[in-house]
Design a protein around this nucleic acid. Structure first.
Lengths: 149, 149
DNA sequence: TATTGTTATACTCTATAACTATA
DNA sequence: TATAGTTATAGAGTATAACAATA
């Protein structure tokens, strides 16, 4: 039973992403993390002291949704919040966070290798350029206007 | 503020898919449909009389989750269910469904054009091959085993 | 016995509005 | 006035377990 929708690059993009995400989350399950948590840990490691809002803007997570997300990571004991001024919370990794991130990085590396391993050798150098081109957040205004809102 | 995670193809894949999906759903909103509904209509149009379970297997939607999904589309009056044997439900488009699908196809075509339009001319022929290579559902057993379950 | 559809349930993710307290 | 964090809430999407009816 063949899928008549392959041929639509938006559809392929979604299915490929969902499949890869499921695979990654299965690999991360033993660590008690999911993909979003690992992305957050990686971001904080790259920019220690980043605030909740800044992290949310980079990862495209809204302020309101950052609250339970950050709380969960804090509850796992992998990150810590520090008040930088009256309103901003700086995020930092704890020792346990650094340890868990090191393990997660190995899982992510294995996942990346598996993903790229599926791509024929000659196409492999095109993977990142193609994905970066397909990403490119259009200003929401343009979308909203195009859709008539 | 640059994103330190670009460079991970799994991350790019997810962000690109999320961004494209949001754009498509914004375009589809005036029709009262979302991406999943359009995928379903397209599938039924390509295989009239397909059963709920078969459709779920192709679109990777579980049996239990098909129930409210199909019910919503039926409630919109775009599909109809027909009993083929004691247990299977064949799905078909209604007239209204065919009409709405025709409009949705134009929206999808515009969305596809926009997606591909972001990709430099020389990379464009690689988009579908790259995405098809990155998809390739690994047997779940392999994932489960790799993750130690 | 395996499959189809179903119910119930729960968890994650996402989206919006409104509030506060700070800058 | 704009921003950071928060609360509350609602809607998707997804996952599992269990059950009845049927093949």
């Amino acid at each position: 039973m063949k899928d008549p929708l392959i041929g639509l690059c938006g559809y392929l993009l979604q299915r490929a992403a969902a499949s890869a995400l499921a695979g990654l989350n299965a690999r991360l399950a033993p660590l008690g993390l999911r993909h979003a948590g690992v992305a957050m840990l990686m971001l904080i490691a790259a920019r220690p002291g980043i605030t909740q809002s800044q992290a949310g803007r980079i990862l495209d997570i809204q302020r309101a949704n950052m609250v339970p997300f950050v709380a969960r990571l804090e509850g796992l004991g992998v990150i810590r919040r520090r008040q930088v001024d009256g309103r901003s919370q700086a995020l930092e990794l704890t020792g346990r966070g650094r340890l868990l991130l090191a393990r997660a990085r190995r899982v992510v590396a294995a996942h990346e290798a598996q993903l790229l391993g599926r791509v024929p050798w000659k196409l492999r150098p095109m993977v990142l350029p193609v994905l970066m081109a397909l990403w490119q957040d259009e200003p929401q205004a343009a979308v909203a206007q195009a859709s008539g809102r």
